[in-house]
Design a binder for these strands. Structure first.
Lengths: 244, 244
DNA sequence: CTAAGTATAATGTGATCACATATCAACCTT
DNA sequence: AAGGTTGATATGTGATCACATTATACTTAG
């Protein structure tokens, strides 16, 4: 969360139609690209919780000097996606069950607020996109061998499409930070399961959520979101093999 | 905001009573000390919103190289206490009225959750400390020329003593991050007012909160906190001269 | 006189180096 | 054999330097 503020200068493509073909050039700092790379790696669950990381090792793998890695790692540590131990070593945080439950409660508070607020902002054209994401999600789950990374992406896009509609940037940043902490565990714990089919939550919380949003029923929308987070969380707690 | 994880090794003072007089030695990195210094500066409202900062300037003032300042500033930017513009310049964020209202809503959600949870954890001896802070706060306000920094500190200590009792570390970090964003505005806007006496909130929300906590009445405790945040916020919005 | 272009100064970024500290193994002492 | 010591290796931290980019002031064309 909290990338650099996006540039507000008028882009040239709008001024000169002849230059419309120009792609925006990559302008980000090296540290920012390293940050995004590590972030992806974490959210995709490609590193084991508790694993120790060294700056030089990461720098070597990424082909940079340790400097930008330092910034990126430090940033992820502030967000809770990595852990800076007092020994001055860095490791992937271990998500305990109690910690998972705590994050779930915070998520219900914050994402519930976002859903309530989004109820007042969502317009008809928005729902097309929401339905599309929800379709990808449910269809992905019904496949014989679900591509979990696609399913998770659709789930994330659905949730954040709603949250962004709330138009509360600070809140959005806080929610993203929590997803970053939960992401690796979520993916890892579900990836270990052989069969995910038929486990779609008994009440289809996503559809209930979208229905409530269409009716501008903030209370029901919040309740549907709570159901979604609680039931998904119970699956993780039951089968995710979290310590403690 | 996730400092380094505190060391869990058994401190020597508990093992050998003879060494009880030993003070813990300063072990933090330079970057961490710079971070704390800047943090204090921001929370105390010693810099103007919108003011631009440069690394070399800060480093010169602090007597260090730009390096640790870089880390500290980057960290504060992640937490939202500073702003990294796309021009690669750093400035103190400007708090608009709408942004202030958004943060207030998030605070009510998070700090309300903390209060509810604290209701189940607070024990009799805890209340002595809470009453002490509350006493400092109200007495400080009744003075002819209130020392606002003392009043704010007492207020902060009271609130966080409750939040810490909730025993939810992730939640505590999120709340601290919000206070860090609000702090400078809070102090600045109130400092400009000539007279603060007699403005103590009509219903004494702090006392109501403590009373509800004693009775283990989570609902009333949350309501008291909401009243506190809302009424304090209205004062800022009315007299704080925030832009927009 | 206004706006575009240009030169100079200043700033953040990234690389490299030096150093204090932590980690771990082998070794020694009791 | 257990606890302590010592030495070697590796790691994060901070300083210094080089460079691309940005900001600012100045100049110049229209």
């Amino acid at each position: 969360m909290l990338q650099r503020i996006s540039s507000k200068t008028v882009s040239a493509r709008e001024v000169r139609p002849a230059l419309a073909a120009l792609q925006p050039v990559e302008n980000a700092t090296l540290a920012l690209r390293v940050y995004r790379g590590l972030r992806e790696m974490l959210m995709a669950g490609q590193v084991q919780p508790g694993q120790k990381l060294t700056l030089r090792e990461l720098a070597g793998a990424l082909g940079t000097s340790p400097m930008p890695v330092r910034e990126a790692v430090q940033r992820l540590a502030v967000e809770g996606a990595l852990e800076a131990l007092p020994n001055r070593t860095i490791r992937v945080p271990v998500m305990t069950k109690t910690r998972f439950r705590e994050v779930r409660r915070i998520r219900i508070a914050l994402e519930g607020l976002a859903v309530e607020e989004a109820t007042r902002h969502l317009r008809a054209p928005d729902f097309a996109r929401l339905e599309k994401y929800n379709g990808e999600f449910t269809r992905g789950l019904q496949r014989r061998h679900p591509d979990l990374s696609r399913v998770f992406r659709a789930n994330k896009e659905l949730h954040f499409a709603v949250y962004e509609a709330a138009a509360m940037p600070v809140l959005l940043g806080a929610i993203e930070s929590l997803w970053l902490q939960i992401g690796p565990v979520l993916y890892l714990s579900l990836r270990t399961r052989a069969d995910y089919r038929g486990r779609s939550p008994a009440p289809d919380w996503h559809s209930r959520l979208l229905g409530a949003l269409r009716r501008r029923d903030a209370v029901s929308a919040r309740r549907a979101l709570e159901g979604d987070l609680m039931s998904a969380g119970e699956q993780i707690l039951a089968e995710g093999e979290l310590p403690e």
